[in-house]
Design a protein around this nucleic acid. Structure first.
Length: 664
RNA sequence: GCCGACUUGGCGCAAUUGGUAGCGCACCGCUCUUGUAAAGCGGGGGUUGUGGGUUCGAGUCCCAUAGUCGGCUCCA
């Protein structure tokens, strides 16, 4: 008996018992959506179903490919080491991983032999066959897999949406069936769907690296060995992905920082503590100078505070209670102990500051404040120290000592929303000046029931709603981040996409009703009553170091002229033109351009090479032809040229590029 | 902090099974040098992250420690 179904938008007649295989002849269709749900092609089709094909190259298709590849990896691991216990193996961005409980960590050689074993499995064309089971039967079959048993027992509880093993519906197992013998050669608890067979994985996969990972993501659990892999519909796409990774590695700020002589992390100083070299110093100072100028224009007042303080200050703020493990341990001073070890004089504990806000609060409190003083905007490039765990340090983007471009705004409740709107506007404008222009916002809110968050729930609600209104008014995309708030209040963070599409958390704006309370901050209102101000914490760069790192990667070290450590290098074609070109360079230096003349013994092409590698934005060249025309020639970093430009025009061209902060 | 890998002159790398450290770039000197990514010659520089140990002998093996890298966890 035939009936009709809707397939990819048109009507099809199929026989009873038909499956996706009868609908899709194309080898690139790997699965299908039946009435919106992802299904294997082997899923039987019923009358009235609405079906759409899932191509291998689609998002869904890639996930299925990667998940199936993960299964093949797990089978390969167990074929080599039958003792390996299975964790989970989901698809992720660009690939997949699978966790194993094994006695010995995987070595690079292991990965090679695993790839070989995977190739054999893939070539053998095993079919993925779905089988519905129940908890009791599955528990019997998987008796040797303790982690799978745990998943079964957790079914439907706190596994979350992303789980690839068990879903809300039926419990299913996927058998890998050998096409020749029809035997089940391997199986795994899995909700699917999968490719029809392993052969469709093809040769566009690779194992990338191994790492340890806590079972179910908790530090309290055992660490399993994770193997990361990547999988693509074709070898060419795999190659393209690998090439992309190499390109990203080339713009790694840690590498560029050494290559371009910008900064370093001397081992003698300590982990996560950077020094900036002269060239990095120029970039950093230029960034800071411009930021300072813009802040001045926008009504911020500049303050300074010390790097250390007595512990009491952080008890008042609450940091010592909630985040002491993130702070460097105290320096105990002035304690006197007698010969018997008895304390004669009580000492004092001093701490390196992990934040600037308590200091600014003390400045607020240094005098009686009036509503006329508000909004009071206190700004500081404040250097803070945080005891980040050794394993999380990462160049400039995650350091133990860094400077925040930190400001605290004290406003009345009535002005709060307007001030927040202005701040967000100010931030986005400034980030654009630094060359970032693709943003979205994240709203970090408290998590109900988590004791980490302090303060009155009503106030949290007011703060969160206000931030949400301001964020929405910006017109930018707003992504929720539940549980991501600071302990004292919710925040908006600005996420920026860089030149190769990676996103970075940049600025944060936090609303705080808690610290004004703890510090007993108040001002006199127009009616003479004492009122509590609202506090807004905000940082644009987050940390100067981190922003420096992000910009380095965004520009791949090819900084726009206004930030470039060396803006112009004069390269004479021969010594004879040193004086002529030197006069042009002197003229640029006289108007503040960072320019110098290369009169080294190197030959002309060598100099071009040297300064191209140094990523100098303007190379000015002069030889006989230029001198005769009273001109110079430009060479840019990409190799393009602009010959015989009149000196006047050349100077103006350079000055305007710097002034307008454009890229060249 | 946890798991794994790595650590050789400023940088990038090399040194068969343990036998007394090499190369390129950079640096210094000399010679030569007119047109768009590396002129030639010569020279200095490391005891192999640090501290122990095994051995007749260790860059190569073992232990500890520091740092780096990849992940996990974390990120006020």
């Amino acid at each position: 008996m035939a009936f009709s179904v809707s397939c990819d938008g048109s009507s099809h007649d199929v026989e009873t018992g038909a499956t996706g295989f009868d609908l899709f002849a194309s080898k690139t269709v790997v699965a299908m959506r039946v009435n919106g749900e992802l299904k294997d092609l082997a899923h039987p089709i019923l009358a009235g179903d609405t079906i759409t094909s899932v191509e291998m190259s689609s998002q869904d298709g890639l996930s299925i490919l990667r998940h199936s590849t993960a299964h093949v990896l797990a089978q390969a691991v167990q074929s080599i080491n039958p003792e390996a216990k299975l964790g989970i193996g989901p698809p992720i961005k660009d690939g997949f991983y699978y966790d194993f409980d094994v006695a010995e960590a995987f070595t690079p050689e292991d990965l090679k032999s695993l790839e070989k074993a995977m190739e054999r499995i893939i070539r053998s064309g095993q079919r993925f066959v779905r089988r519905v089971t129940n908890e009791a039967d599955a528990a019997k079959e998987l008796a040797a897999e303790p982690y799978k048993l745990e998943l079964i027992s957790l079914k439907g509880s706190d596994l979350g949406e992303g789980s690839a093993e068990v879903g809300a519906g039926e419990l299913t197992i996927y058998d890998n069936v050998d096409p020749q013998s029809g035997d089940v050669v391997w199986f795994d608890l899995c909700r699917g769907p999968h490719l029809p067979n392993t052969r469709m994985i093809g040769n566009g996969f690779a194992l990338m690296r191994t790492a340890a990972a806590y079972w179910r993501g908790s530090e309290k659990n055992k660490q399993l060995q994770r193997v990361y892999g990547t999988a693509w519909p074709s070898k060419d796409e795999l190659r393209a992905h690998q090439h992309q990774l190499e390109e990203a590695a080339k713009r790694d700020h840690r590498r560029l920082g050494a290559e371009l002589d910008l900064f370093s992390f001397p081992e003698e100083i300590g982990s996560g503590l950077a020094v900036f070299h002269p060239k990095g110093g120029i970039i950093r100072r230029t960034m800071e100078d411009y930021s300072r100028k813009r802040h001045e224009e926008s009504g911020y007042e500049f303050v300074y505070s010390p790097h250390i303080t007595k512990g009491g200050l952080f008890e008042t703020s609450g940091h010592l209670q909630w985040f002491s493990e993130g702070m460097f341990p105290p320096i105990r001073i002035d304690e006197e102990v007698d010969e018997n070890g008895v304390i004669r004089k009580q000492g004092q504990d001093y701490y390196l500051k992990p934040m600037n806000c308590p200091f600014h609060n003390l400045i607020f409190k240094s005098q009686a404040r009036s509503y006329r003083d508000l909004p009071l905007r206190l700004f500081e490039f404040g250097t803070v120290y945080r005891y980040e765990k050794s394993g999380v340090l990462h160049g400039l983007t995650r350091a133990r000592g860094f400077a925040q471009d930190d400001a605290h705004l004290y406003v009345t409740l009535q002005d709060m929303e307007k001030e927040l709107t202005d701040v967000l506007d100010f931030i986005l404008g400034l980030l654009r000046d630094y060359g970032l222009d693709d943003f979205y916002l994240e709203l970090s809110t408290k998590e109900d029931g988590n004791p980490k968050f302090v303060g009155d729930p009503e106030i949290w609600k007011l703060a969160t709603e206000t931030l949400e209104r301001v964020a929405n008014a910006s017109g930018l995309e707003l992504v929720p981040d539940p549980g991501g708030a600071a302990f004292y209040g919710p925040k908006i963070s600005v996420q920026a996409r860089d030149a190769i599409g990676r996103t970075w958390q940049m600025s944060t704006v936090q609303l705080d009703f808690n610290l004004p309370e703890r510090f007993d901050l108040e001002y006199t209102a127009a009616d003479g009553s004492k009122q509590r101000p609202v506090m807004i914490h905000r940082a644009l760069f987050g940390s100067i170091e981190r922003f420096f790192g992000v910009l380095t990667e965004h520009y791949a070290g090819i900084f726009p002229p206004w930030l470039a450590p060396v803006q112009v290098v004069g390269i004479p074609v021969a010594d004879e033109f040193n004086d002529y070109l030197g006069r042009v360079i002197d003229r640029l230096r006289a108007v503040g351009v960072r320019a110098h003349l290369d009169i080294s013994d190197d030959r002309f092409p060598k100099k071009i090479r040297t300064h191209t590698k140094d990523k100098v934005p303007f190379m000015l060249i002069a030889g006989g032809e230029d001198r005769d025309a009273n001109a110079v020639s430009f060479r840019y970093r990409d190799g393009s040229q602009d010959n015989s430009v009149a000196i006047e025009d050349a100077v103006e061209k350079i000055l305007s590029a710097i002034r307008d902060k454009v890229q060249v």
